[in-house]
Structures are given as C-alpha cells and as structure tokens.
Nucleic acid binder design. Sequence first.
DNA 1: TCCCTGCTGCGCACACTGTACGCACAGTGG
DNA 2: CCACTGTGCGTACAGTGTGCGCAGCAGGGA
Lengths: 243, 243
Amino acid sequence: MAAKAKQIPSVWAREQREPDQPALSRAAIVREAIAVLDADGIEALSMRKLGARLNAGATSLYRHVATKDELMELAVDEVVAEITVPPAAAADWRAAATEAAHSFRATALRHPWLSAVLGQAGLAYLGPNLMAFSERLAALFTAAGFPEPSSAIDTLLPYVIGMSSTEAAWLTTVARSGETEAAFIARLMPAAQQAAAGHDHLADAYARAADEPLDPATIRDAKFAYGLDVVLDGLALRLPGKA
Amino acid sequence: MAAKAKQIPSVWAREQREPDQPALSRAAIVREAIAVLDADGIEALSMRKLGARLNAGATSLYRHVATKDELMELAVDEVVAEITVPPAAAADWRAAATEAAHSFRATALRHPWLSAVLGQAGLAYLGPNLMAFSERLAALFTAAGFPEPSSAIDTLLPYVIGMSSTEAAWLTTVARSGETEAAFIARLMPAAQQAAAGHDHLADAYARAADEPLDPATIRDAKFAYGLDVVLDGLALRLPGKA
DNA sequence: TCCCTGCTGCGCACACTGTACGCACAGTGG
DNA sequence: CCACTGTGCGTACAGTGTGCGCAGCAGGGA
C-alpha cells in the first residue's frame, strides 16, 4: 500500500524514494510489530501487513530480520525491558519479589501476546533484556539469602507466567467480543452453569460468583495477589533460619 | 489422497465408496487429530493433512466439526480425560494434590501441545472432561477444609500449567533438534554462557549447572516437585487451624 | 569519468493454509 | 417411485511465510 501509485514503467516517471521516511531498520520493524501485536493480537501479525504499515513490501523486512520467529523473539525481548525488578539491595526481599511479579503481570496484560509466546519458548530465548531480567531476579533471591535462588525463580516464574497467560487470553477473548468484561461474563454464565450441571462444587462456585458484587478486574487482581502470597509464603519457609 | 485415482469422468467407471473404511465421525477425527498433534506438533496439523490420513477430503471434516478451533477444543477435552485426580475422600489432601499435579504434568508432556492451547484458552473451554477435572479438584480442596477451594485451585493450576508449558516447549525444541536432551544442552551452552557474560549470578548458575552430573530429565522432575512443594506449603498455611 | 562491489527494497512465484459454496450420491420415509 | 436429508468432495478465494533474482543506490579505487 505504498504511496506511489501503479504507473507505466518508465525510467523518467520513476520517482525517487522519499528520504524523509523513517528508514526501514530492525528497530523500526520491531517497534511496529509490537504495535500491531498489541492492537490486533498475535494472529493478526503478518509480514505483508507489517510491511504495508512501514510503507514497504513484505519481503523487504527479510533484509533486517531472518524469519518471522526471529522477529517475535526480538519483540519479546523488547517488551521484557518494561518489567521492573527492584535492585537486590532492597532490605525486604518479599516486597521486591511482589513488585517484580506485579510488574510482570502488568506488562503481560499490556501486551497480551507476551506470556503465550514466552511460555511457548522456554529457555531458547537469550535476548539481552531477558537475560538482564533473569539476572536481577537471581540477584534479588541471592541477596535474600536463598541457598538455591534458581529454584525460587523456577517456582515463582511458572506461577506468574501461568496466571498471566490465562488472564491475557481471557481478556483477549473479552476484548474481541466488544462487550465489557461484566457483560461478557453475564452472557457466558448460562452456558457455564449448564456445563456445571451435576457437578455440585462447580455449580456452587458459579452461584457464589454470580452473587459477587465486585467488578471482575478487582477480582482478578485479588486472585493474582492471593496466589502470589501463597507462593512467597512457601518460599519463605525455605529461607535458612526458618527451617 | 483417496485410493481412487483420477480417471475420465464416466458414470460406468465410477467406483462405489468403500464401505469397510472406518466411517468419518467426530470421534475418529478427534482421535486422529490428537495422533497428529502428538507426533508432529501443533503447527503440523492442517485440515488437509488430517483429511488425507482419514482417507477423506479436507472439507469433509467440516460436516462433523464446525471449525478448526472447535476441533482443538475437542482434542483438549479428550486429552484432559487422561488426568487423574484422586477422589475427595482421600485422607491426605496433600498427597492427593501432589498426585493430581504430577498426573497433569505427565499428561502435558505426553501431549506437548496441551498446555499451550489450554493456557491460551482460559475459561472459555467448557468440555465435559475439563468440567469433571475441575469438579474433582474442587471436591478435593473442599474436603481438605479450605475455606475457599477455588482460590487454592487458582494458585495451584497456574503453577502447574506454567511449568508444564515451558517444559513441553523445551522438550519440543529438543525433539526437533534430533539430539538427546543432554547433547542439545551441551550445544546450547556456549551461546547461553556468552549471553550471560557480565551477569554474574547467571554465569554462576550456568557454571554450576554444567558441573551437574544428574541427567536433565531427573533435574526437571526435581524442579517440578520442588515448586509444587512450595505451593502446597503455602496453601497449607491457609488451612483453618494453622493460622 | 568509469566500473565494480555490496547493500537495500521489491515483484513474482511457490507451496501452503482455513473454509464457503454447491453438486453428487446413499439411505430412509412416505 | 419420489422427496428429503445427511454425507463426502471438487473448486475456489483470500490469505500466509518466504526463496529468488532484479533494480537502483553508495562508496571506493583506477
């Protein structure tokens, strides 16, 4: 969808490339890809569409990026930089870990494709920002006095990733419906209750949830905080001097 | 890829449909889809390929399944039936929860696409087996005496899903490399150590891991069990009578 | 002034994807 | 015998990622 219209091929008629365009570059491509991902979701990102948004052809992108997967990897690493992990010197490791976890969740909800891609990649991503993130987490738990900080990280991160990814998927579904979260829940409720028929505990839980006056976002916040506290409680028991 | 070859159209030459073929049915389609998913991964499943394996055209499947997403939902629910959750009557809730978690992980590693799809779907899936699974978990934690069993579930499940999905992704990557896990790690190590340069804690962790004599599968088992214990410890603190 | 080399963008093409549409046939009920 | 319904399939459409080779530009010698 370049600005230049189709015209008969002629050396004289050919225009110069606009020099004021933001040049195609890896950074610009990644930035635009993130914008598309945030706005339209992961399956809406195609190389053609991305190229069009950059006033370029689809295959031009491949001069700067080896493959679409590599582009995703770059986008992940770029976005991971938004997560803040308090410095290790902080006296209260628990507050620091809580802040890091909440920052992760906030980032994952701001970029709903993040956790899905991250969870599906595992240790294969070695981008600088991801490494820096891991390093700061390791520093935090080491300073806290954990004998094996990586075990602590390998407990906390799966929880945070698991929760964030289901939550992001849910919010994506809601957003696609065009309704508010409460309205979407209300519309889904009958089907859920029907599916829960014969399952007493589930039916009870649904009934209790229906009476809940709190708004869904608050409930999700509380749920995440609750589970996080559980995990941190469990970790605290592993600190030397507590056993 | 039907058995009948192309031939000049003629009423006389047209063959009958083989009646001994296993009839195309929703159950057969789902079963075959799971086989493809297990063998070749999630992005290898295409309707055409699936149809071919069933001696049918691609679009024939759509008589039994509304859309590919629906097929995935059916496959997930089918596979979820493999997860065993001990009955609520079990005296030791902790052993029961541990068994359920391990069963989940085993199923997720047997079907490496499971957690990714599950984590990306959230509460939207309401299949009977998934409902039964949730019900039994709820029964378990209710019988254990938790005041709000759903909070316990919403803590445990994200951990289990998060851990299983990264693990499954890792194993998929390893499998695709054609090497053993140990060999793959050895080949990845230089890149990882280079990426960890300047990050002291990470570099230490890598160095320690390189000296580790245990085989990777054992380490993964231990890591999962460790985090699971952490979560269950944290949950145990929420049992009335412990506060 | 010329050519040569290397880099960037792009048009085309290939092999694929999910799935809508409408026809041809089998079995069933009237 | 006819009508109807359910099933399979061939064709087609609008996409997808990406390999290949060409066209222009920048800079560096001769």
